[in-house]
Design a binder for these strands. Structure first.
Length: 616
DNA sequence: GAGCACTGC
């Protein structure tokens, strides 16, 4: 390519993956399991099997090799804390450092103290191998909790996998860019003008960036090019639009996929030869003081940058254009970033550890320790929910029941409370809808139609009740995709809601929750929501003309999100499910409540005076 | 009247 770039060369790091687009819809676990079964000449589900959330393809008598997700293995540990069924455990992709992987690594280290014969294999990208080895390094003898020195044990094998990618040549900009969207667009155009055929993958941060870049590439007459097929890719994109990126590129054309981080690890695009890396992604950050999680655009790590570059070397030698300087990459970019554990609300982690009998959460040996403030905040929240007792142990039965439900503990608490209010069927439906991205079919071009469709289901009580109306309509339609289409509802999302509902109903019955419908009494449904989410209560400011609310607990200024059915309705008291922060903090999924319920469900959390600052 | 990185149980 022309001037403005400096060059370097690295080897792509990429594990083997499936090739044809049919298989791309399968998870890595499914493809890995089938491949191993095939090579061993055995039937999948017998000697070789796999387990993912909704699918258990194993046979307890026959299966010798089992592929599973870290989340499933953590669930198994609740019944079998020492994982006594397994003699060898291999943790793949350990460098990705997800919440579950970090918890798992900490627990495996603990298990090995009790089970020295257990063999561990940790597979990680090279860049992380050293820190992984030092985490498990048993030659650094440590004093156990009881003051007894631990004996020598075997260290796990750390496999650092460089994969089979082709060589990828790296280019950097010579001067920092001020606008990475424009820089990405002009880089795409330069590649198209000067480089041989091959698809281009561009990493930006979110839907807004992606839309802006696509507009520049397709509508601006100065930068529009012939022969480019420009496609967006992000998780919220309707399924049919997502599938377009997997269709083969017609001869003589060049495909340009403008993507979020979804293409960094979750989805694999074949045929990509050029990668354009903005150097940024959206990352979650948690503030334990305000108890609010924010999604912010932040610089990526070197590990991420290498992973992105590797996406260019899957079919032949490729090129990666980094929209930052080499000096920045070498001297300023962090090696592996801040782990997810250190950026998250820890309520879900803490309950998982408690359920596994880890009493000393603050002393747990994490691969990367979260802040004490975040841990203490999580313990406080769980205590106020009645899930932990004065000794920070799981309460019985509530704490153990909540731990059994595979959802955020606040949602699980709502389900538990719904048992007392006689509305568990409704609570389970709400929980299922809250655990997926959106039930609405998102199409920015048809915003008005979507708003009108929403009005058909809108409930005065709020979004949670609106979800119940939608689900009811879906069932009455015979789960029709046509009905979904007519009502701007995402059919795939509704199928998923149904699947999650079935799982939750099974679990509810197992832990002693009676499946019961309140037959339209929405007051009890709102009370059940309050019992789980009382900490998210907000009051409309008395003199507010623009819908300003303050959180009861932290006096944070928040507004109802325009996508909520309660937008502009502004009831005096509301409870939100989550916050999105832009220039304002917006509450998403909001329900109206009566403030007296707060003191009913959480007397220890809410003092009566707080709710009525000027009584009488 | 505005805007939702990504997994996963």
């Amino acid at each position: 390519m022309g001037g403005g770039w400096t060059g370097d060369s690295v080897h792509a790091t990429e594990a083997v993956s499936c090739a044809d687009s049919m298989k791309l819809m399968l998870s890595g676990i499914q493809t890995a399991a089938s491949r191993v079964a095939e090579e061993m000449g055995v039937k999948l589900s017998e000697e070789v099997g796999y387990t993912i959330r909704f699918e258990d393809i194993t046979n307890s008598e026959l299966t010798r090799i089992k592929f599973l997700t870290d989340g499933v293995l953590l669930r198994e540990m609740m019944d079998d804390p020492l994982l006594s069924k397994y003699s060898v455990i291999m943790v793949d992709e350990a460098h990705e450092r997800s919440l579950s992987t970090d918890i798992l690594l900490g627990l495996l280290k603990k298990i090995q103290r009790r089970r020295p014969e257990l063999r561990l294999i940790i597979s990680s990208a090279t860049i992380e191998a050293k820190s992984m080895a030092s985490f498990f390094d048993t030659s650094r003898r440590r004093l156990g909790r009881d003051g007894e020195e631990n004996g020598p044990r075997k260290n796990p094998a750390i496999l650092s996998v460089e994969g089979r990618g082709f060589n990828v040549q790296i280019f950097y900009v010579e001067e920092p860019v001020s606008d990475y969207i424009r820089a990405a667009v002009s880089t795409v155009n330069a590649i198209h003008d000067e480089e041989p055929m091959g698809d281009i993958l561009v990493f930006l941060t979110g839907q807004d960036d992606i839309d802006a870049a696509i507009q520049l590439l397709t509508e601006d007459p100065h930068s529009r090019k012939q022969g480019l097929i420009v496609l967006p890719l992000y998780s919220g994109l309707p399924r049919g639009d997502q599938d377009l990126v997997f269709s083969p590129t017609p001869r003589g054309k060049r495909k340009v996929v403008i993507s979020t981080n979804i293409a960094e690890t979750s989805l694999t695009l074949e045929g990509v030869v050029y990668v354009v890396d903005s150097g940024f992604s959206k990352q979650r950050f948690y503030n334990p003081i305000t108890d609010i999680e924010n999604l912010v655009v932040a610089p990526i790590s070197k590990a991420s940058a290498r992973q992105r570059a590797g996406r260019a070397g899957r079919v032949r030698p490729g090129k990666c254009y980094r929209l930052y300087t080499e000096e920045y990459f070498i001297n300023e970019m962090s090696a592996d970033g801040i782990s997810e554990m250190q950026r998250s609300n820890l309520v879900p982690c803490v309950i998982q550890l408690k359920a596994l009998g880890i009493d000393n959460i603050l002393g747990f040996d994490w691969p990367a320790s979260p802040s004490p403030e975040a841990l203490i905040r999580a313990l406080e929240v769980l205590y106020s929910l009645g899930i932990l007792d004065d000794d920070a142990k799981l309460t019985s039965p509530a704490g153990f029941q909540v731990a059994e439900i595979p959802l955020d503990p606040l949602v699980s608490k709502m389900i538990l409370a719904s048992n007392d209010y006689g509305c568990s069927e409704e609570a389970i439906t709400i929980a299922a809808v809250l655990s997926i991205q959106s039930i609405w079919f998102s199409d920015r071009g048809a915003q008005k139609e979507l708003d009108e469709a929403k009005l058909r289901f809108a409930a005065a009580e709020g979004d949670h009740v609106t979800f119940l109306n939608v689900y009811k309509g879906f069932i009455q339609s015979g789960k029709s995709s046509n009905w979904c289409h007519k009502n701007h509802i995402n059919y795939h999302s509704m199928r998923k809601v149904d699947e999650i509902r079935q799982q939750l109903r099974r679990i509810a019955q197992r832990i002693g929750i009676a499946l019961k419908s309140c037959e339209g009494d929405m007051q009890v449904v709102r009370k059940a929501v309050t019992a789980g989410f009382f900490a998210n209560a907000c009051r409309l400011e008395s003199f507010s003309h623009n819908g300003l609310y303050k959180t009861v607990r932290g006096s944070q200024e928040v507004y109802i999100h325009p996508s909520s059915v309660l937008f502009r309705v502004n009831p005096k008291w509301v409870i939100f499910h989550s916050i999105v922060s832009t220039d304002r903090q917006y509450m998403r999924n909001v329900i109206a409540i009566d403030p007296s319920w707060l003191t009913d469900v959480a007397p220890q959390f809410y003092q009566h005076q707080q709710l009525n600052p000027r009584p009488h």
